[in-house]
């Protein structure tokens, strides 16, 4: 295909100027637009991490799929874990519009050369964990993700619209499960409280380091691929969640949690980052297991992918 030649090919600074103007006007950058290399690399990393997190995130809850305690819960959980596979797929697709390749990204995940959200390295000890993951972990994810629906990169923003719509079902099913369990036996109520105790702080850590220790945020904000600061989103999550905990009848494990009458916002205690550091540095309870499962899925079934490719080649044009 020969493109009509332009009289004056645009030089780099003109392209940069056009890119900056597009961002400044709040318009979307689309796949075939010129973009700075740093923007592209940052986006691929961010979207890939997000996709990896969805795929690894299938496992903590997936561990309960076969044992879900009612058929209705089994169907709900199956639909949810399936959604997460879908979310990973939408996101890998968005990364592919930037020149990445899904199989290559999967390899990098399995070889631990790319990372995923540390929250998914915690184990799910009881069925209440399924509910708490929906309520707190998905709730925190929604706080992070809703602003991404306005990401400056079009394919990512569009993928996130769909993801966010589906995530809202995830959070609601989790909260509903917990409400049901809280009307159940004393043992069930204790299970819920125990799960809340274990997941509350990791959920707050999901928002990342405090703003003054988050060096890369400024550039991402300028590029419109990050919309709110870590602390801002964390505060928003706490303010949303505390009243929900009250309705549920559980205690959030933070003695310093208190409503600030002046601001209408909740003050909360200092986060102990050393615990998260331990999980991140590969000493989390489930790091190896999570990766091993994905590796087995890839390697044990490579013959299936190859078979379908071979069949397609044999029957091409038939």
């Amino acid at each position: 295909m020969s493109a009509p030649a332009l009289d004056r090919p645009l030089d780099e600074s003109a392209l940069q100027g056009r890119f900056d103007a597009t961002i400044a006007a709040g318009h979307r950058i689309e796949p075939r637009d010129w973009m700075p290399e740093g923007y592209r690399k940052t986006l691929v990393r961010q979207i890939a991490q997000h996709a990896h997190s969805e795929i690894i995130g299938m496992q903590p809850e997936g561990d309960w799929l076969l044992a879900a305690p009612s058929l209705r819960r089994k169907a709900v959980l199956l639909a949810k874990v399936q959604d997460e596979a879908g979310h990973g797929l939408y996101l890998y697709s968005a990364a592919e519009t930037l020149g990445a390749d899904r199989a290559d990204l999967t390899d990098k995940l399995i070889e631990r050369r790319q990372k995923y959200s540390s929250i998914f390295n915690y184990p799910t000890l009881t069925y209440a964990d399924v509910g708490v993951i929906g309520w707190l972990v998905d709730g925190a994810a929604i706080c992070n993700q809703v602003p991404l629906c306005r990401s400056s990169y079009g394919p990512y923003a569009r993928a996130m619209i769909r993801v966010c719509k589906e995530e809202s079902f995830h959070q609601r099913q989790g909260y509903e499960l917990l409400m049901t369990m809280m009307t159940g036996t004393a043992e069930q109520q204790a299970m819920v409280q125990d799960a809340v105790d274990r997941w509350w702080w990791p959920s707050l850590m999901m928002f990342g380091p405090p703003d003054d220790e988050s060096p890369n945020s400024a550039q991402s904000m300028a590029w419109g691929i990050k919309r709110h600061s870590n602390d801002e989103l964390r505060q928003r999550f706490v303010d949303m969640t505390v009243p929900q905990a009250e309705v549920l009848g559980v205690t959030l494990p933070d003695p310093e949690l208190a409503l600030d009458r002046d601001t209408g916002r909740y003050r909360f205690g200092a986060i102990d980052w050393s615990e998260l550091q331990r999980v991140i540095s590969g000493q989390g309870p489930c790091n190896d297991e999570r990766i091993a499962r994905r590796r087995a899925a890839r390697d044990d079934n490579a013959w299936v992918t190859e078979a379908a490719t071979a069949y397609a080649e044999k029957h091409a044009g038939v």
């Binding site: 639909a79 874990v81 797929l89 079934n301 992918t305």
Partner: peptide
């Protein structure tokens, strides 16, 4: 079929397993 969730190589196939299992679960209920 649910045993295949998190065990399939291609995400497309994982989603397909989920749909089939959900259909059957619906019939069972």
């Amino acid at each position: 079929l649910t045993e295949w969730m998190t065990a399939a190589r291609e995400l497309e196939e994982e989603v397909a397993f989920g749909n089939t299992a959900l259909d059957l679960l619906g019939q069972a209920r």
